[in-house]
Nucleic acid binder design. Structure first.
Lengths: 146, 146
DNA sequence: ACAATAAAAGACAACAGCGTCTTTTATTAT
DNA sequence: ATAATAAAAGACGCTGTTGTCTTTTATTGT
């Protein structure tokens, strides 16, 4: 895996909260988890983390739930990966060496650099808004079921 | 990580055994592990696996050790990844969905497909011989220390 | 045959990622 | 104030990866 399962869940959660039909309301974790087919309490902690980092919001009690504010559509995949996984994926030596840099590279360093850049570009250029659009147009789905 | 640490160790081990100076002799696990800075018994099991799969060879007893045969230089990174990790990295849904295909794609499916292809191309085109050449020319190193 | 050597094999421990379940805390409505 | 609600937080278990250590087995040289 390039990103952790946790990070994928986070992205799907944020996209779900950003859908046009959800953007104006608060949604409970039970509904989100059900809709996305993700273990409820696990997703709960993941979203809690995003709340702590200020990316999304939540309120407790009746009619509480998770919700987003407008600017989130401009948020990139990279932003979320940074928060959840950190950027170690894009830095670690491909061959598992402790240290690996352009000064003292492993035999795969240069070759893998272009892969890394491709991934990085994708992370940086793809926004939550882009993913929302795919779901709303019916081209893509979040749950993998429908 | 794209490939497991185990797989990176395997590649480094095979490249080390394939160096010009090592190609004609058998080398003990103690020396290999020392040279590559990899936990000895762990690397031992990894190389044992490669022996079982017929990629490299070994003999026990005095003057025993691990060794390769000529054709290995044409072996690709993909071959080793297949043996050690399998190809799940190149198949799993980026966002962690159980099912994800071009028929029912996640919002990242198409975008990530090009990354996947880039990684796959690298795996398929890069051979052990290529990596050996990098090390022998002094451009790259296996241990990360020297 | 016997001792020395080195891979093979087994048992086990540490750790992280993933997941479940229970308790606590904050908010809302009555 | 009180009860109901839902997120927050805590404790815990499972699994796979990584790593260590010990025992067994096969080979070699004397």
């Amino acid at each position: 895996m390039v990103i952790s399962k946790t990070c994928g869940y986070a992205i799907r959660g944020v996209v779900f909260l950003s859908l046009d039909q959800n953007r104006t309301k608060k949604i409970g974790i039970v509904e989100i988890a059900e809709e996305l087919q993700i273990p409820q309490h696990f997703l709960s902690k993941i979203l809690q983390n995003l709340v702590n980092k200020g990316l999304i919001y939540s309120v407790r009690g009746p009619h509480g739930g998770f919700f987003t504010k407008e600017p989130i559509l401009k948020t990139t995949i990279l932003d979320i990966v940074k928060i959840v996984d950190g950027l170690s994926v894009l830095k670690k030596c491909f061959l598992g060496r402790e240290e690996c840099s352009s000064e003292n590279p492993c035999p795969m360093h240069d070759e893998f650099e272009s892969c890394r850049e491709g991934i990085f570009d994708t992370f940086r250029n793809k926004t939550i808004g882009d993913l929302v659009q795919g779901v709303e147009s019916g081209e893509t789905t979040l749950s993998g079921i429908a």
